[in-house]
Each structure stands twice: as structure tokens, then as C-alpha cells.
Design a protein around this nucleic acid. Structure first.
Lengths: 364, 364
DNA sequence: TTGAAAGCGATACCAT
DNA sequence: ATGGTATCGCTTTCAA
């Protein structure tokens, strides 16, 4: 099974390489059917597959797309990466995997390298508000799709974004807790520098204030503000937050909105260290609805992102040639997140009755 | 920043492209230092980066390596993929991501396509005992590294494998439970068709029999034997196993060894559905020691795989040119797994005292 | 020690 | 409607 070239196919079909190339690239409209058939037959018989490197050298670009995520080690990004790859296969392309660890410098280097290596489109999961640091590459023609970062004013025209409406997500989360009767609700995040996180926080605030409460009264925890941190540490962030909030002097929240499920799970772990019971003593809601949310004990209430849908959309845009111009969805797709209620969120318990309640629980 | 070619570098340095190419490929030994310096300077000043496509077209191969995992959506594979990518960056290569979903046919297609697209080495995480289905590609020169699948008799010479010693792992898991005093230990797996899973099971059996017990007496659950299934469903497998084992007629185990952490977590979830308490009523130990194991409630005892180490080794072999011949480790690297004891495993409780024990628990 | 030139495989322009 | 051919950027004999 030595490699077959277009020349051999041409010879076998009794035509020139140019003609074979034409059918390969879908330019067989005004072609004598017989010729086309001979070529198709030759291709099939010889098991011909065009050489990617040669194509790329000639055309300048590949079918490969780049995927830059904070870290596939984080279950959410892992799940997303998987869906992206599935979508890629369907679209006939391959996926080059890159972990930025949320380091802007690495992000930039990845994007530049991918571009120089001939990648057509890149799906970038970034926390950065401005795309200036890679605008030169975008200007040169890179098809950039940002995920989990809605289009921002000032973004280059050609950039497309796919994301959930994080404001709605934050709002849903807070509202759910409010409806359960909580009035001391903490917002926990490692940092809210990123566009999406800030949006979640704003949505959270909207709900709080709409309920007639003051955000200023809520215990908030956004440690490590200054530190850049990867996504695997998300759980650590949550754990630390739990310790800080429940051993410090401030008001103790009866419920918390965590910036994502890993942080929420870490928070649960922290609560446990302190002898507190999730759901029982403190309600928790996360974001993403990773597989583990449903597996956890108690199962975690979360704001679900429609990952598969988002991956499909992102892929479509990444392989599109027209800078999203022909897309039905427009430059910025904002999908609606969904509240998934499980057992980590309940009505706040009447004070001073923990033991009694606990007994009831055990007997369940 | 238009693209710079080797020609321009040559002109700038006042030499021929051949000479530049020579320094690029480390053949500057017997070169007049001055020439070398001029070239280095030109490269730096022009910001020259060799064109991958051209190189590949000429050489036939890329720096890219292929990574074929069951599914990066599974936290274990996600974590592994991340470490692989980190190692790849260090080695100057890129990673093409492929999800096989444990489908042999997809595996084969991926490997063939990667090879045809010029990939040099592939890190393949397969459950298949025989490599026959891709031996033609290996014969053509593919540098194959199998992960989580030790070398098998009959494997082509050039194949290298990196894996933990699963037999030891299974043995450690069972021994731990035995030492705690358990005598009814179930082995739970979706299928033990794969090489590594079978090894874990055999290790498990060794420990059981060494303890003077009979494996035949142990409740075993290996449902879905016939069904091919991906790795995301692992949790479902565990959950179903819990239901089957604790609602069926057979003996109820007091402890279980799950084939991996996801299955273990699913099992925990299933136990919870039935009103049973992990650690308390049933001890559970998993494999892999994913991040979530420590986060879970109760934290899951597990057999840890030294992922980072393994990724580094796998990468080294994947980019090596000599079919592992020059490697210090040899064809098959078998690392030692490590038992990480947490709270999901305890001594079996004396029968008929669940309520009392529970109360104690709540007060902790 | 360095250079000239052929060629890897596919494409697209320009002919016919 | 099809074919000839230069070209993409790099590497590697072979000569000098």
C-alpha cells in the first residue's frame, strides 16, 4: 500500500492531474460525466488519498483546527474537548489540542504558532476581555471562534463567539436560592476578571437586588484575585473559600453560588472539613453541570451549559470560510443556560435545630 | 510580518539555502563559526520559522504526534491528555486529539489516518490485546506507544508500552480490603475484556486466594460484557452494578473493588439510591485516583496511577526515532501503582447496628 | 566548507 | 472540457 499520488490517478484514468484535482475540489460541474466516472473509479481502485502536506504547502492552510482550552484536565473542558473532536470528525477535520492554563502569554504563543503552522480556524477558550494581543493574526485571516467569551465591543469583525448567556446563568442561580428563602448568599470565585465570570456575577447581583436585598451585604469570596491560576486548581479555590467564609469573622452565608462545578465541589469538601453538611447546613449551586455533579453526594444543583450544541456551533464557525458572514447565527451566539435542581440546594433550615434535622435525615 | 522563507535567510546571511538548512538540522559541526553566526543572526533578525508543510512534504513526516484515548470527557483521560500535551510542548511537538470511544474500528481508522497524514508517533490507549489490526502501519515505520496496555507476546518489535502494573494494582486493592477484615468482596467492571482490566482482576484474585478465600464465592459484576461502551458511561455501569448487587438474590458484598474511579463513583451513587452509606455500609475502592476521588464525600480510596510520569515516558518514546531501541527503559515500562487510602474503605461494621453507628457519625 | 538543482504532491493559471 | 506547467518551502545528493 505504497502512497498513491494524484499523478497515478490521472494516469489510471487517462486524464491530466489538473482534471483529477478539479473533481477533488468539487469543480466537476461542467465535466463530461464519463470522465468524472473514470476518475472516481481510479480514485477508488487505487485507494487514493490526497497528501495533506502537499495541499497545505500549495494552499497555505490545513483542515486542522486548533483548540485552546485552559486545561483538558478539568472535567468541563475535557467534556467540551470531546464534543469538539466529535464535531471535527463530522466536519472532516482534526483537532490540535492546546492547554493554556489560563496564561495569556501561552495563549498568544499557541495562537501564533497554530496560525503559522497553517491552521485555518481556532476555537479559543479565553478569559481575556480584549483580543488585541492576537489581532494581528486575526487580521491575517485566522478564523477565530471564542468560546465561553461573548463578543466584546472592539473585537475584530471576523471573530465569532459561542457562549451561554452568563448573565442569565448568574441570575438563575441566585434566583433559585432566593426562592428557596435564602437571604445570605455568597458568591465564590477564584477571580472574576474574565468576561464570563464578571457576567455571572452581574447576573447574580441583578437577582439579589431585584429581590430587594443589597449585594453589599452578601459575603463574597474572590481570593487569588491577582494570581493567575489554572483550571485544575478550581477545587482548591472552593475549598479555601469554605474555610475562609466559615472560620472568619464575617456573616456566614446559608447558601453559595460557585463560579463553576469544580469550585463548588471543592467548597463542599471544605465544608465537610469543618463538619458542615452540604444541602443541610449550606446550599450550594455550581455552573457547568459536569457529569460529576449528578454523581456527587449530595447531587449538585448546577447551571447547565449545552455543551454538545455549543461544540457543534463552534466547530461550524471554525471551519467556515467566510468569517461567519454566511452563518445563520451571526457573530455572537448566546445560548440559554438551564437550571438543574438537585439536592445540594434546599430551603435554609430554621436556626439551632441541626441535630434534630440530622436525625430525620439519617432515617430517610 | 509576512512569512519568511529559508531563501531570504540565506540571502540575508550571504549563503545558500542548503547551508541554512544544514544549521537548521544540526549539521553545523564542521562549519566555519563565522558562517554559522551570520546565519543564526539572520534567523533571529528575520524571525524565521521553518514551514512545517514544506518540511513534511519533503521528509514525509511531521513533528506532530497522535493521541488516541477512549474519551477525554472521562476525567482520567482528560488528566492524561493534559499531561501528554505538556510533555509534547516540552518535546517541541503538537498533539492531535482523537477519541476512540473504545471502538476498535474507530481506533484503526484513527491510526491509519494519522499515519497517512504524516504523524510520526502515536500514543494509543487501547483495550485490545492484539495489535494485528494496525500492524501494517507499524511495519511501515509508525512509532507506536501503547498506554494502559502492557506489551503482549506477539506485539511488533518496535512497539513500546507504558502502563502501571495492573496485576499489582488489583492485588493492592483486594489486600487493602482483606486487611480491613472484609471477606465478601465484589469486583465490579463493565467488561474485563481489555488487557489491563483482566490483569487487575487477576491481581484481585491472587490476593483473595492468598487470603485463603475462594474467588468463586465472591459476588462479581461484569455486566454489558458484550456491549462496546465508551468511558463516559463508566459511572452508569457502576450505578447499575450497585442496584444489581444489592437488590438481587446473591450474597451482598461488604466491599467492592471497582475497575476505575468513575465506576466507583457511579457505584456510590447507586448505593445512595438504595439508602446505603458508602464507607459505612459498603467499602469501595477505585482505580486511577482522579482529582474527584479526593473531593468526593466520602473521599474515595483508590489505586493511583502516576499519570505525569507515565505521560512523560510515553511522550519520550513517541518522539524517539529508533523504535525505543535507545531507550533506557526498554520496550515495556511497568510502573508501580500506589494505594491511596481515604474514607470510602473501612472495616466491615458489625451486623445489625446501622442506626447506632449512623448517629455517632452525625455527631462527628 | 559551501552551493546548485532536483523534487516531494497538489493546485491553479493559462492555454487549447 | 481538459491539459501543461510553474509554484509552494524545504531538504538532500552531488559537485566544486
Amino acid at each position: 500500500m505504497a502512497k498513491v499520488t494524484i499523478q497515478q490517478v490521472a494516469k489510471a484514468a487517462g486524464v491530466s492531474p489538473s482534471t483529477v484535482s478539479n473533481v477533488l475540489n468539487g469543480r466537476s460541474d461542467r465535466m463530461v460525466p464519463a470522465t468524472r466516472e473514470r476518475i472516481d473509479k481510479a480514485i477508488a481502485e487505487l485507494g487514493y488519498r490526497p497528501n495533506r502536506a502537499a495541499r497545505q504547502l500549495r494552499n497555505g492552510r490545513t483542515q486542522t483546527i486548533g483548540l485552546v482550552v485552559p486545561s483538558v484536565g478539568n472535567p468541563f473542558w475535557g467534556a467540551f474537548a470531546r464534543e469538539i473532536e466529535v464535531a471535527a470528525v463530522a466536519a472532516g477535520s482534526s483537532v490540535l489540542l492546546c492547554n493554556s492554563e489560563r496564561n495569556p502569554d501561552r495563549e498568544r504563543r499557541y495562537v501564533e504558532e497554530l496560525w503559522e503552522d497553517g491552521v485555518r480556524g481556532i476555537i479559543l477558550c479565553t478569559s481575556l476581555a480584549s483580543l488585541d494581543y492576537i489581532s494581528h493574526v486575526i487580521d491575517e485571516g485566522l478564523q477565530l471562534v471564542t468560546f465561553d467569551r461573548p463578543a466584546q465591543p472592539g473585537d475584530p469583525e471576523s471573530v465569532v463567539s459561542v457562549s451561554i448567556d452568563n448573565h442569565v446563568g448568574g441570575y438563575l442561580a441566585a434566583s433559585h436560592l432566593l426562592e428557596l428563602g435564602h437571604t445570605q448568599i455568597a458568591f465564590v470565585s477564584g477571580s472574576i476578571q474574565s468576561v464570563n465570570r464578571a457576567a455571572r456575577y452581574r447576573g447574580f447581583c441583578s437577582a439579589i437586588e431585584e429581590a430587594g436585598l443589597s449585594v453589599g451585604d452578601m459575603p463574597m469570596w474572590t481570593g487569588f484575585e491577582a494570581l493567575p491560576f489554572g483550571d485544575v486548581e478550581a477545587a482548591e479555590v472552593g475549598r479555601k473559600a469554605a474555610h475562609d467564609l466559615f472560620t472568619g469573622d464575617g456573616v456566614r452565608p446559608t447558601a453559595v453560588v460557585a463560579i463553576n462545578d469544580m469550585t463548588a465541589l471543592g467548597f463542599c469538601r471544605g465544608l465537610r472539613d469543618l463538619g458542615l453538611t452540604v444541602g443541610e447546613d449550606v446550599s450550594i449551586i455550581g455552573f457547568d453541570d459536569i457529569v460529576l455533579a449528578d454523581l456527587y453526594d449530595p447531587p449538585l444543583t448546577s447551571i447547565r451549559q449545552p455543551i454538545k450544541r455549543m461544540a457543534t456551533l463552534a466547530m461550524e464557525e471554525a471551519v467556515s470560510q467566510d468569517g461567519g458572514a454566511g452563518s445563520e447565527v451571526g457573530r455572537s451566539v448566546l445560548l440559554r443556560p438551564q437550571l438543574v435542581v438537585r439536592e445540594s440546594t434546599r430551603a435554609p433550615k430554621p436556626a439551632k435545630k441541626r441535630d434534630a434535622v440530622n436525625t430525620t435525615e439519617s432515617a430517610r
